[in-house]
Amino acid sequence: MIWRFLADVVMVVHGALLVFFLIGGFLAWRWPKLIWAHLAIVVWNIVIVLVDFGCPVTATEKYFRRRGGETPYPAGYIEHYLDGKLWPEGATPIVEKIGFAIVVISYIGFFILQRRRKAAGQAKVRGDSVGPRT
């Protein structure tokens, strides 16, 4: 029973990592230091997609499912849990491209905000007014 519980925990964590992949760049707009954790997840996903090897998180879930007496699903996490449920079956390559585009958009916004913050910080240091005088 503990093995099935662990498999479910890994499944939920895996889903959370995928959600973080999509929105982490936007979260970094508010909490800039978060960008480093997000960048690690992005690089991880790029490698998995480009090299096309099995995700170790999926392998861990399947290991726990086997230990719990279940037959693990044959495909990957996305194909098993999301393909055909969250988007039309077989559209995963398109969804991956959209996901990476969302990340690029979030990073563009992040870098624009960082430049503005830096410029505002330099204006304060120089004594320039950055707002109305009262």
Rank of each mutant, 00 (worst) to 15 (best):
D52R: 06
V51D: 05
D52S: 09
K62E: 13
W29C: 06
F20I: 00
A40R: 02
V19K: 01
V19Q: 04
V47G: 07
F20C: 01
L18E: 05
L50N: 12
A28I: 00
N45Y: 05
D52K: 02
L17C: 13
Y73A: 05
W44Y: 15
T71N: 12
Y63S: 10
A37F: 14
V43E: 08
F20R: 03
E61Q: 13
K62G: 09
L27Y: 08
A37P: 01
V49L: 10
V19F: 13
G15L: 12
L50F: 13
G15V: 03
L50S: 12
A28T: 01
G25Y: 00
L18K: 00
T60K: 12
L39F: 12
E61N: 05
D52L: 10
E61P: 08
P74A: 06
V49K: 06
F20H: 06
F26V: 01
D52W: 07
K62L: 11
A28H: 05
I46F: 13
A16T: 04
P72M: 07
L22Y: 00
V57Q: 09
T60L: 15
N45R: 03
H38Q: 09
F64D: 07
P32D: 08
P56Y: 02
V19M: 11
F21A: 05
G15C: 11
T71W: 06
G69F: 09
L18Y: 06
T58V: 02
F26A: 13
V43A: 15
G68S: 06
I35S: 11
T71A: 15
L39S: 10
H38T: 00
W31R: 11
V19H: 04
K62Y: 10
C55E: 04
F21M: 04
R65S: 07
T71S: 14
V43R: 03
V43I: 15
I35R: 12
F64E: 08
Y73P: 02
I41K: 06
C55H: 01
L17Q: 07
V47N: 03
G24P: 00
T60C: 13
I35A: 13
V43N: 05
G54T: 12
